[in-house]
Nucleic acid binder design. Structure first.
Lengths: 238, 238
DNA sequence: AAACTCAAAATGTGATCACAAACTTTAACT
DNA sequence: AGTTAAAGTTTGTGATCACATTTTGAGTTT
């Protein structure tokens, strides 16, 4: 029955207050973000509908939304898949993250008060704990929360959706990076960021964010990891 | 029959080779980008389907896609509308454009060859012609083409979708800005950009792009234009 | 006159169906 | 055997329908 490799995605309980489309969207988004779907693997509406036990309609809408966010790619064939990655594209995504997130951080700085700073401190503590326990998936999630909390301090924030789009595109390939994270994540750039915030030093904050991003993912763009990218892609280009 | 202000959008001939959903998407996108739909005006699927003479289905998909691109906003009520604008948000969108587009320009610079430079020169000439004729809408379109041609020189480009999202969000309110464009657009920043490209001077290119964006739209965030933003919004907050 | 109530109309969501385009498999032929 | 051709299957697109929720508007009350 399964001609292609079977799709195994994390299913969560569906909250009644949320529409089916939203639930499907969140489920698929999580699956894409965590690399549960092989790049290049064709995603069909009916197959996903069957897996998620819903009608094709909510899947259609969720797929289109994810495609609009660049998390999925619609080919000319109208086939939907997780985009394949290349070393150059990975680098571009990284550099785009640095450019946009350091900008967002500087723009948020004037709005950061004691409450938000406390929130950041607590998130940093939680990250340290997760790191000590070796729970890399939790580290990744908390790290995102840290960045999100920082940027959303700006009440007129407009860049977060763009940043989340970049996270989504990098997500499937971050798993490879975080496996090496333990040995590389030596310096706590979050502490540097918070010190910069206390001093209201925009430039220092941008440098801390830049370093955090670069150290977190940039080293993943090495030849051996690029090989993994190609390796794990389903159905190499004909 | 029309309880609210009627929606008047530009209809183009539908190409048979394109899906109805894509045609609806392009039509609505153009309408949003050119401020043909009042911010805050509720957009209903059936009303648009009636106007465009299609079934509700393609409209549903197009609306969801535009919402994912931040061109439309879905409220908790599940009502869809063009987001309202504020002076602060306008400024943030502007600054985001500068940060991302100057980054994209610098990233594209190494890939610009004689062919692309010629293309840019020709677009600049066309802009001058349209400016001389006073065709501000054409100037706006060609200006976008200029920027797009520059950024897409980078074959590993990942920021263009993000940039287009910002254009879409600013679009509805650019009409107000371009009405003043004639008197303000004194210096040809495109020429500065092309000189920087010839010299492969990334910093000069970034400065030219920054100036081009800032002079093109930043002056729109003045009190009197902000007033127009509120003025033209339909159905003030209840 | 302003606020509340409740029925009628409208709307988004989700399911099902029909159809054409794309893909897959099988068969025939060089 | 390798290539081509056609039949069969799968898939995305679009239309239509049912239903629960929301919005609207008239009628009533304070």
């Amino acid at each position: 029955m399964d001609k292609k490799s079977p799709i195994k995605i994390t299913l969560t309980e569906r909250d009644e207050s949320v529409t089916i489309t939203q639930w499907v969207y969140q489920t698929l988004r999580y699956a894409v973000m965590n690399g549960q779907i092989l790049p290049g693997r064709a995603l069909t509406i009916r197959e996903l509908a069957s897996i998620l036990d819903v009608s094709p309609m909510p899947v259609r809408e969720a797929l289109r939304q994810l495609a609009a966010e660049n998390a999925l790619e619609i080919q000319g064939n109208r086939r939907v898949m997780v985009p394949r990655m290349t070393a150059m594209k990975f680098t571009e995504l990284c550099e785009a993250r640095i450019a946009i997130e350091s900008h967002a951080a500087a723009r948020a700085l004037p709005y950061i008060d004691a409450t938000i700073l406390d929130e950041l401190r607590q998130l940093d503590r939680l990250i340290d704990e997760a790191q000590a326990l070796g729970d890399l998936e939790q580290v990744s999630i908390l790290n995102q929360n840290f960045h999100r909390a920082l940027y959303t301090a700006n009440p007129h924030q407009v860049t977060l959706p763009l940043i989340e789009s970049l996270w989504l595109q990098l997500g499937p390939f971050m798993r490879l990076a975080t496996s090496k994270l333990e040995e590389h994540y030596l310096i706590d750039r979050h502490n540097e960021a918070m010190h910069a915030i206390e001093r209201k030093d925009a430039l220092a904050l941008q440098m801390a964010i830049t370093a955090d991003i670069r150290e977190g993912i940039a080293f993943a763009a090495t030849p051996e990891l690029l090989h993994s990218f190609i390796e794990q892609s389903a159905g190499v280009s004909a």
